[in-house]
Amino acid sequence: MKKTRLTLILVSLCVLPLPLLGATANYAVGFYAGIMPSPGGDLNSYVQIAKYNSSNGIDGINKSLDGFSTSTINRPFGVTGGVEFKAIFFDYYFARVAGNYTRSVYGGKGKTVYDSDPGAPFVPELLTAKYAITAYDIPITVGLCIPFWKDVKISFSCGFAVAYGDYTNSFKSTSNTDKGSFSGWCYPLVLMLQGEYFLTETVSLSSSLSYYRGSTEILKDSKKSDTVDFAKIDFSGYRINFGMAYYFYSI
């Protein structure tokens, strides 16, 4: 069903500009790379609530105790990049489709302490936690593009993305090992502010800030060797990108 929806969206995008080919239009292709702080949000899951006493995922799993060598488990820091196709109609109207890849590269691992036997008196144990997330998405946005002077364009657009994510976590201690792996689709809301500086009449440098909001439904852990876990993949967050674009016609 979701594949059918995706196909329909992509076909629509290909067909949509056709009636406008005769109109005043300019098209561009580009690439960009940047950062995404905190991909995946708090990366919460059922096992973290039930076994490791963290009701808010990676934020709540950090604990310390005298005699235990713990280290802070920070939210992951991600890098992102992609390619884009943009169309500007009648100087002001803007449509954009892109393909993005995002993954966590830093943070998301460390050592904490937890009560390994909640029924008994406090039995602390050192726990090594790791989180990682990878996401692919196709954002489709429309909006307004305003030229400033002859060499700057600022565009504001919004829409949605077709997003697919992979989220993995692992928790290892002397008495417990839990690993989770989750994959799923959703359609997050997308907002984008992009600025472009034209080096020539057809080549521009760009910077952009985009905001996503949305998450998958609750997904079941695909690793069957341990406690079954449940989690959602949260695509919400900000992405900052810098890149370059080539316009097919002179601006």
Binding site: S215, K220, F230, K232
Partner: peptide
């Protein structure tokens, strides 16, 4: 309401499991 929905979805999936 996504946070409320997440709570119910989680509870339903755990019940099913």
């Amino acid at each position: 309401i996504d946070s409320i929905i997440t709570q119910y979805n989680g509870a339903m999936e755990i019940y099913k499991q």
